[in-house]
């Protein structure tokens, strides 16, 4: 009796959350799917008509799509490489006996808490401005020509900003994983005369394999839709050089008001994200059983 009552209660406690998330997931997605089959422009209201897969054909063959797909992949790949290749040594360093480690940790984690619009504008103006930025001044100290970041290497500039925001995340997770590494195992290896390098390769790195995978997957989910950093620094330009898929869809929807094409693009973005999400969910699910 009591059990059945408990079960009923448990189910009714769960229902609001499940219901809301279900609606949240299904309704917009279904609408996106529906709009993607329509000729639907906000500039031309009343002319909506079913056009099948025409929007997809338009979106996928648009040169802007290929350019933005390439930018998305370069952005995600570079930020992942930077955050992990810098995050591993940084985490190893913070795992050492360091005087004032807690304070150093605070400095390292800080960029993650800065809102994207602030970090993007601070980097764009105070650091990367071609005349009055700090980097320009540093370059002049070494008699180098200052880089005009957002004109000469716009995508790289965006990559640097985003990598700065995500480096703390990678470092913190890798550090947490390092701290759970069994010290005795490492000590035993050292006793047996293993060098620091081979201890790292044969003990530390395998231990980090899983957290690195998790960092890659979670960062990818967020990096696929980098938006604010591009919005406040380059607006996707010059040309299309910093337009990623998220920004392309935004500009089609809210600048060109082409609802149909933007919806088709939105579905493409969902598919790409789902490929990554599939692997992440599997890893998390395996952990749930353990």
């Amino acid at each position: 009796m009591a059990t059945r009552q408990t079960q009923f209660l448990a189910r009714s406690l769960l229902t609001p959350a499940v219901g809301l998330l279900f609606v949240w997931m299904i309704v917009p997605l279904a609408l996106t799917l529906y709009f993607s089959t329509l000729h639907y422009s906000l500039l031309d209201p009343g002319s909506e008509a079913f056009i099948g897969l025409e929007n997809f054909r338009y979106f996928l063959t648009d040169p802007a799509f290929l350019a933005s797909l390439q930018n998305t992949l370069v952005l995600v790949g570079s930020v992942l490489a930077l955050t992990i290749l810098l995050g591993i040594p940084l985490a190893l360093l913070l795992d050492q006996p360091v005087i004032g480690r807690n304070f150093v940790r605070l400095m390292v984690i800080a960029p993650f808490f800065v809102m994207p619009t602030v970090s993007a504008l601070v980097w764009k103006n105070l650091l990367m401005h071609p005349v009055s930025g700090l980097f320009a001044w540093l370059a002049s100290l070494f008699h180098l020509t200052p880089i005009d970041w957002f004109n000469d290497v716009p995508l790289f500039a965006v990559i640097l900003i985003v990598a700065w925001q995500w480096l703390p995340f990678a470092t913190l997770i890798l550090l947490t994983a390092l701290q759970s590494l069994d010290e005795e195992q490492k000590e035993a290896a050292e006793m047996d005369g293993a060098s620091a390098v081979s201890t790292f390769i044969y003990i530390t790195l395998p231990h980090l394999a899983r957290p690195i995978t998790v960092v890659i997957l979670i960062e990818t989910i967020f990096l696929l839709t980098v938006f604010a950093e591009i919005y406040v620094t380059t607006g996707g330009g010059p040309g299309l050089s910093t337009t990623n898929i998220a920004f392309l869809i935004y500009s089609q929807a809210l600048i060109q008001f082409d609802v149909g094409s933007a919806s088709a693009g939105g579905l493409v973005a969902v598919v790409i994200a789902n490929i990554v999400a599939f692997f992440l969910v599997r890893i998390v699910g395996r952990n749930l059983e353990a």
Binding site: A10, G266, A277
Partner: peptide
Amino acid sequence: FSPTKRTKDILLWMLSTKMMPPVGVLVP
């Protein structure tokens, strides 16, 4: 506290809704 056989699936499903890119549903 009252897990059922489906609890794990529900949790993973909830997680997967977080992975939907917001830009995918910007228009609607």
